[in-house]
Design a protein around this nucleic acid. Structure first.
Lengths: 227, 227
DNA sequence: CTATGCTGACTGATACGTCAATCTATTAGG
DNA sequence: CCTAATAGATTGACGTATCAGTCAGCATAG
C-alpha cells in the first residue's frame, strides 16, 4: 500500500482559463450566492429535483463542486432557499399588479389572478417544480410548500370575508371559498404550463372569475354584478 | 483466488419457515403478480416512489429481490402498472356510484364527485402518490398521468356539453368548464388528504357543485336550479 | 504571511438490474 | 407406481453506477 498524494495538479497546463474572481466582500459573496441560486434555478427547472446533481449546478455556475457547499449546507437547503426566493418574487409581482389596478376592488382581484398566471408563465418549469412537484419530494419540502399555499389562501380568504361583509357575495364558508379560488388558479396556471392553449392570461383570468362569480346556471338579466 | 460458492445455505437451520408455494399455473402467477402489486402499493404509499426500493417491496411481498424482476421488468414498469390498476379502480368506483344515483341526472353528477372524494380518502397515500406526485417523477410518468387526467376531463366535458345543449347551463367553452370542474375536484380531494377538515365527502361534494352551478354572487330567488 | 475563498478527488452509502445457482412441480421413461 | 429428467420459478450475491457530502490542500487578496 503506497501512500499516494490525493492531488497532483502538477506537470499539467491549467485545463481552462479559470479567471474566477474571489468573493471577498460581503457584497461579492451575496453576488456569488445569487449566481449559484440562479444556476440552481436553471438546472432544477430543466431536470427536476432528483435528476439534478450538485455537480450540474456547480458546472452551470462555473464553480467547483465544493464551492456550492461553501455557500449552502446541502442540496435541500439550496432548494428551500429557492422556494423562499420565488415565493417572495410571486408575492411582489402580485402586489405590484394589484396596486396598478386601483380603480375598482374587483379589478384588483382580477389583476391578482391574472398576475399569477403571468408569473407562472414567465418561468414555467421552475414554478412547476417549486409550487407543485415539491409536494412529492417528501416531508421536508411538503411542509414548506404547504405553508406557502396556506399563506395565499389566507390572503384570498381576507378578500372573501371582506366582500361577504358587504353582502356582495353569498355567505358560503369563506375558507372553502378561498380554497376553491386558489385551487382554480393554481390548476389553471399549471395547466397552462403543460398545454399551451393559446389563450392570453387575461382571458383565462376573466373566465375563472366569471365562473366563480356567476356560476354555470343561467342568470336572469335583471341583476348585474357590481355594487 | 478460490472459487467460492455463491450460495451456502448448508450447515444452517432455515432462517424462516419459507413455505413459498411456487406459482406454476397462470392463475397462480396472476396471483403472485397481484401480491407484488399489493406490496408495492403498501410500500410506495408509505415511503413515496424514490424512497422505496425493490428490496422493500420484495420483503413486504415475502419474496426475494430477484423474483420481483421475474414478474416486472423494472421499478418503473411496476409503478406504471399500479397507476393503470388504480385508474381503473377509480373509474369503476365512480361508475358504480353514478349507476346507483339514477334518479336524477344532476344527482348522478353529485354522486360522481362524492365518489371521487371517497375513493381518494379510502387510500390516501397511494392516491396522492399516483394522481399527483407522479407528475414530479419525470417525463416517464408525467405522460401517463396526463393521459389519465385527460380521460377524466373528457368524460366531464361530455356531461357539460350535454347540459349546454339542453340549455340548462351557460354557453361557456366546454373544455374550460370541464377543466375547472376537474380542477376543483382534484384539488379538494388532495386537500382532504392532507388536512382532515372533518367534513363528510357528501358535504364537500355539495359545496363544490353548488359553487360551480350558482356562483358567488347572490341570486334572485325567483329562478330555481333544475329543469 | 495568513485568513479564507475555492478546488476536486475521494468516501461511503445506496440501489437498480443481472445472473448463475438452486429448488421444486411436472413430465417422461422404465 | 416409482424414479430421473426437464422446465421454469425462486433466490440473493454481485457488478455497476450514481451522488451527496467531506476534506486536505491550493491560491490569492490584503
Amino acid at each position: 500500500m503506497t501512500e499516494q498524494p490525493k492531488h497532483q495538479n502538477s506537470s499539467e497546463t491549467p485545463p481552462h482559463e479559470r479567471t474566477l474572481k474571489r468573493a471577498i466582500s460581503d457584497a461579492d459573496k451575496d453576488l456569488r450566492r445569487n449566481e449559484i441560486l440562479a444556476a440552481a434555478k436553471r438546472v432544477f427547472s430543466s431536470k427536476g429535483f432528483h435528476s439534478t446533481t450538485i455537480a450540474d449546478i456547480a458546472k452551470d455556475a462555473n464553480l467547483s463542486y465544493g464551492s456550492i457547499y461553501w455557500y449552502f449546507d446541502s442540496k435541500d437547503a439550496l432548494f428551500h432557499e429557492l422556494m423562499a426566493v420565488e415565493e417572495q418574487a410571486l408575492k411582489d409581482y402580485i402586489y405590484a399588479a394589484r396596486k396598478d389596478a386601483t380603480t375598482r376592488p374587483d379589478q384588483s382581484f382580477q389583476a391578482a389572478v391574472q398576475a399569477t398566471f403571468e408569473f407562472f408563465e414567465a418561468d414555467k418549469a421552475l414554478v412547476k417544480l417549486l409550487f407543485r412537484d415539491s409536494y412529492a419530494l417528501g416531508d421536508r419540502f411538503e411542509a414548506h410548500l404547504f405553508r406557502i399555499y396556506e399563506g395565499f389562501i389566507g390572503d384570498i380568504e381576507a378578500v372573501v370575508t371582506h366582500y361577504q361583509e358587504k353582502g356582495e357575495i353569498i355567505d358560503a364558508p369563506p375558507h372553502l371559498v378561498a380554497f376553491s379560488i386558489a385551487a382554480l388558479i393554481t390548476e389553471f396556471a399549471h395547466r397552462r404550463l403543460e398545454t399551451d392553449d393559446g389563450l392570453p392570461a387575461s382571458v383565462v383570468a376573466d373566465f375563472v372569475i366569471k365562473l366563480l362569480l356567476e356560476g354555470l346556471l343561467p342568470r336572469r338579466k335583471d341583476r348585474s354584478g357590481g355594487q
